[in-house]
């Protein structure tokens, strides 16, 4: 079955992928995001957070997006190089 997968790592990806029936979102993450920590990402299916044992369904939209994007101004005297 096919699902839409959106992810920014590597070359970036926003297209349909084929997965086997019964694949959970945890298994999918492990396959597609090898070596990455789930805690570094917001993982949603059809715009909703899901449990890790959620079985992906035909036509699902899976997004794996970065979290904690934050910036701060330099403090006086702070090293920036």
């Amino acid at each position: 079955m096919r699902i839409l997968f959106v992810n920014n790592d590597g070359a970036g990806f926003a297209d349909y992928v084929t997965i086997t029936e019964g694949t959970t979102v945890e298994q999918f993450f492990t396959i597609k995001m090898e070596g990455r920590e789930p805690s570094d990402y917001l993982i949603r299916v059809n715009r909703q957070p899901v449990p890790k044992d959620y079985c992906l369904q035909e036509g699902d939209r899976v997004t794996i997006t970065p979290t904690k994007i934050e910036g701060a101004a330099c403090r006086l005297g702070q090293q920036t190089a």
Partner: peptide
């Protein structure tokens, strides 16, 4: 005045 933090769900 010294920081910005994106909302994770809004990024998604």
């Amino acid at each position: 005045a010294v920081s910005v933090s994106f909302d994770d769900e809004s990024v998604a």
